[in-house]
Design a protein around this nucleic acid. Sequence first.
DNA 1: ATGAAAGCGCTAACAC
DNA 2: GTGTTAGCGCTTTCAT
Lengths: 346, 346
Amino acid sequence: MSDMKSGRPGNRVRLEDVAKLAGVSMKTVSNVVHDYPHVSATTRERVQAAIDQLGYRPNLTARTLATGRTGMLALAIPEIDQPYFADLARHIGEEATRRGYRIIVEQTLKDLEAERAVIRDREEGLVDGVIFQPVRIDTMEIARLRPDTPLVLLGEGARPLTADHVMIDNVAAARDGMDLLLRQGRRRIGFLGMVRRDPTQSTHLRLLGYQESLLAADAISDPALVVETDWFGVDDGITALRAALDAGARFDALFCRDDLFAMAALRVLDRAGLRVPDDVAVLGWDDTALARYSTPALSSISPDKAAIARTTLDLLEDRMAGFDGVGRHRTVAHAIAERDTTAVSG
Amino acid sequence: MSDMKSGRPGNRVRLEDVAKLAGVSMKTVSNVVHDYPHVSATTRERVQAAIDQLGYRPNLTARTLATGRTGMLALAIPEIDQPYFADLARHIGEEATRRGYRIIVEQTLKDLEAERAVIRDREEGLVDGVIFQPVRIDTMEIARLRPDTPLVLLGEGARPLTADHVMIDNVAAARDGMDLLLRQGRRRIGFLGMVRRDPTQSTHLRLLGYQESLLAADAISDPALVVETDWFGVDDGITALRAALDAGARFDALFCRDDLFAMAALRVLDRAGLRVPDDVAVLGWDDTALARYSTPALSSISPDKAAIARTTLDLLEDRMAGFDGVGRHRTVAHAIAERDTTAVSG
DNA sequence: ATGAAAGCGCTAACAC
DNA sequence: GTGTTAGCGCTTTCAT
């Protein structure tokens, strides 16, 4: 009942209070807090007792100011509720916790100004490092800024020479997915999700792999099989695929830019009375919850998200430790999660 | 090429550097930075020029130490990649940004120790407030701790008198969902997802609403219609529902504890050759991406997540402004997103 | 093994 | 309108 003044700061227990109570100097308390070995057992005990009695917790802000380390990392992504980014955040969050960092999530909402803010905020000393999946911002704009804070880029967007980069090999992954479909004897394989004006490179790279595979397999490569969309997302996918079918397009498989477009495919195909996978196989990308839990379960290109998280943190910790070489690009493994939508009938 | 010493802190531009260059005092620079009105135009200009030339950015940590405000909020949730929490994080993140806060995401992974850490960390001055959806931790354990930092609780778990609380009326929402099903003439309505040893109250409350509706409508209330599961998640749901069907249970509707169990229902019903919604209607809870994008599209109880975010921030800002009354409990609106799985046939 | 004191960069009260 | 200065709470040489 003593200091219940609504919990406002100001009446918090400080290092000095502990020192006073224990009858030692601040340095000694600090030593105990940090498990510094050269402290006599009795002193340690006395100090610990004072800490417990007072319920002392070090002020992290003051520590940050004194040490220059915040112990925080920024994770800047377009939208946390997009299944892929939710998965990514989970993995990066876990890996960060494992290594003793906290994560500040910055949603850019695919907005250019918000992405610029991410880059600028690096300079305010709030975080030790930044993990950033840009969508809109230009490579050179990132490169131009002072490298005040370690930065690792994710995805296929901007890739300035000054920053590290983690991604999967989109072209190779697309080819792997296509090869699976081709091995099943699928020949009229459509590409769903050729997003017009996609500010990132991803769509382009995946389409490239799609084309390469088609060429190598002597399968049908027809512009009519490539379904363009106005933008990302299930609704755009539904509209576009429906229009394509109405226009007479026929597929025996759909290679989708991501799981969201694959969900669109499942919806439209179902409405059109086409069976999956018997009439049309469907392959998604990102291996999100959507893929695992849909019926039929969606096969999907599966980036190794845990590896992305590990690699990202590795690179970032290098930078935080002072490494300042030219930007490194790391390619992380991918696999194909084979489920119902590419099952071989029979 | 001057201070390119790898961007390590220490050689950052400080307020004092700006003051020196502009030939004014720190206070004046501070005034300019904060848009303090009483600064002569010429002075302001000169200072701004110095700021731009040096690329000065205020050190947020120092500001925090001086003001006691961090401008950060902690969002502690079980798992960011669970669709409901991803949605929630999106809304809370947007609302927080709107009000000028950043969000630190703390994943507790439904782990008791991690939840305790959340409560303890409040005391380290890292954040101005905490938004916390507990799963394991005991009410009294939360109540016992010093209320050093404003706290708002989410969900139906612990509800100490000392903390504010935001939730939807689970019993009423369950009844609303059941009434929809009953109006359609469904009589053998099952409850999928009676999670054994659910550490939260949610399952219990939803089941309560389910029963109340059944009773009020003189519909069939049969323990065999309540499908128990070992734990949360699609896989547990699939196992449990399959077993129930094998054991002879028959439903014309499934009221599911959440969208994950509803996805399980769609999978199992499909495999069993039962049509949705003609043979069996399915209703989920949380209105996540899973519901919107599945085929058939899942009807789902829809908590007003934007309202949850707004209300939560309102309460938190009250507390941060010094309010220290007894814990307030706010009930937020819910609706039913009606989609294919409860569509009326014909 | 422990203590004293000088910062870390900013804010805000108080002077001028 | 602008300058001085004393903190905010911790870390960290440098003594002892």
